[in-house]
Simulated assay, not measured.
Amino acid sequence: MDEQRKSGFENFGRRVDDKVNEALPRIEEELKRIIAYLNDEVVPDVRRNSLKAMRIASTKLTELADRWEHGNR
């Protein structure tokens, strides 16, 4: 009975392995598309928004420093 279970498990493992190997090229292509999308669409927007946020923060920090410098807390 143990041999039968072992054989069944090995066959299952082989089938899973075969399915994964069949799917790998498609998975790799999809990952390439996702990476390209992130690089082309998401990263530029994040950079733009980050730069805008840093400029706003810089302005606010300058205003705060000016108020402190003039004693108007």
Score class of each variant (00 low, 15 high):
Ser7Tyr: 08
Trp68Ile: 06
Ile27Lys: 03
Lys19Phe: 05
Ala23His: 04
Asp40Ile: 03
Lys52Arg: 14
Glu10Val: 03
Leu31Ser: 09
Ser58His: 12
Asp2Cys: 04
Val42Thr: 05
Met1Ile: 04
Asp17Val: 01
Leu24Asp: 02
Ala57Tyr: 12
Glu29Thr: 05
Thr59Tyr: 13
Glu29Leu: 11
Asp45Ala: 03
His70Lys: 13
Glu30Gly: 01
Asp17Arg: 14
Leu31Phe: 11
Val16Ser: 05
Asp45Glu: 15
Asn72Pro: 00
Lys60Asp: 10
Arg33Pro: 00
Glu10Asn: 04
Ser7Gln: 14
Val16Glu: 07
Lys19Cys: 05
Val42Ala: 12
Ala36Gly: 01
Val20Thr: 06
Tyr37Trp: 12
Thr59Glu: 15
Lys19Gln: 13
Leu24Glu: 10
Leu64Lys: 09
Leu64Ile: 13
Lys32Pro: 00
Arg47Met: 13
Met1Tyr: 12
Lys19Trp: 05
Pro44Asp: 09
Trp68Pro: 00
Asp18Gln: 13
Glu63Asn: 12
Val16Arg: 04
His70Phe: 04
Lys52Gln: 14
Arg47Ile: 11
Asp2Thr: 06
Asp2Pro: 00
Asn39Leu: 13
Glu22Ile: 08
Asp40Ala: 10
Glu63Ile: 02
Leu51Phe: 10
Thr62Phe: 06
Ile27Gly: 05
Glu22Ser: 02
Asp40Lys: 11
Glu28Phe: 01
Arg48Ala: 02
Arg26Ala: 10
Glu28His: 00
Ser50His: 01
Lys32Gln: 14
Ile27Glu: 01
Gly71Glu: 12
Trp68Thr: 02
Asp17Ser: 15
Glu69Lys: 10
Leu51Glu: 15
Arg14Thr: 07
Arg15Gly: 07
Gln4Glu: 13
Lys6Thr: 06
His70Val: 01
Trp68His: 02
Ala23Ile: 03
Asp2Met: 05
Asp18Leu: 09
Arg33Lys: 15
Phe9Lys: 11
Asn49Arg: 14
Lys19Tyr: 08
Lys32His: 09
Gly13His: 05
Gly71Ala: 05
Val20Gly: 03
Arg48Asn: 03
Ile27Met: 15
Glu69Ile: 00
Met1Arg: 11
Ile35Asn: 13
Met1Phe: 08
Lys19Asp: 10
Asp2His: 05
Thr59Gly: 07
Lys6Trp: 09
Glu63Leu: 09
Asp66Ser: 12
Gln4Lys: 15
Ile34Glu: 13
Leu64Val: 09
Gly13Val: 01
Asn49Trp: 11
Asn39Ser: 14
Arg15Ala: 13
Met1Thr: 04
Glu41Val: 04
Leu31Tyr: 11
Gly8Pro: 00
Val42Lys: 10
Ile27Thr: 05
Leu38Arg: 08
Met1Glu: 10
Ser50Tyr: 12
Asp18Ala: 13
Leu61Gly: 04
Arg73Val: 04
Arg47Tyr: 07
Ala57His: 07
Glu28Leu: 05
Asp45Ile: 11
Arg26Thr: 08
Arg14His: 03
Ile27Ser: 01
Leu64Gly: 00
Trp68Val: 12
Arg26Met: 08
Arg5Ile: 11
Arg26Pro: 00
Lys32Val: 06
Leu64Pro: 00
Leu31Val: 08
Arg15Tyr: 04
Asp45Phe: 03
Thr62Gln: 13
Tyr37Glu: 08
Thr62Met: 08
